[in-house]
């Protein structure tokens, strides 16, 4: 059996026949070739796979593509426009918010959801929000700094 899924991914309508057990993250990476979204665990804990579904951050490894049928999905690839980094991406670059970069797409998509609900987050609020995003190499200090700088830059735009 297969199911038809249709959704808007980064502003573009897409539709495909998939096995019902296809995870959203695999749909994005394999079918849509959007490999910016990563998979770092199989316990739904690391957040490398975070994307936005209907404007809210979710772990795309813990959602079926079929559940996103009819939804609007945004991945890390939606952020830079014509090679111009999004202010949050630029803030990670300026503040050494990444080392290997594996966790970064999830960190940034999670951070953008935080800024949506709280445009001026404190350090503590950022640390609490990052509960579901693990980084195994940079250390959180510069990530928190990046998000603070990114939020500030976004409020100036």
């Amino acid at each position: 059996m297969s199911v038809t899924v249709s959704m808007i991914v980064n502003g573009k309508s897409v539709s495909a026949e998939v096995d019902p057990r296809t995870l959203l993250v695999d749909f994005l990476r394999v079918d849509q070739r959007l490999t910016g979204t990563h998979v770092g665990c199989d316990t739904s804990q690391c957040g490398a796979c975070v994307v936005h579904v209907n404007g809210k951050s979710v772990k795309s490894c813990t959602m079926l593509a079929a559940q996103a049928d009819g939804a609007e999905v945004a991945t890390i690839e939606s952020l830079a426009i014509d090679g111009q980094l999004h202010p949050m991406q630029e803030a990670f670059r300026q503040n050494h918010g990444l080392q290997c970069g594996f966790c970064t797409p999830g960190m940034i998509m999670s951070a953008l959801d935080l800024v949506n609900v709280n445009s001026n987050p404190s350090e503590r609020e950022i640390r609490e929000w990052l509960e579901g995003n693990l980084c195994r190499c940079t250390g959180y200090h510069n990530i928190v700094k990046s998000i603070q700088a990114g939020a500030e830059a976004m409020s100036e735009v």
Partner: peptide
């Protein structure tokens, strides 16, 4: 409960 993404689903 859990983290923001767990709470969103």
């Amino acid at each position: 409960i859990g983290d923001p993404q767990v709470r969103n689903k």
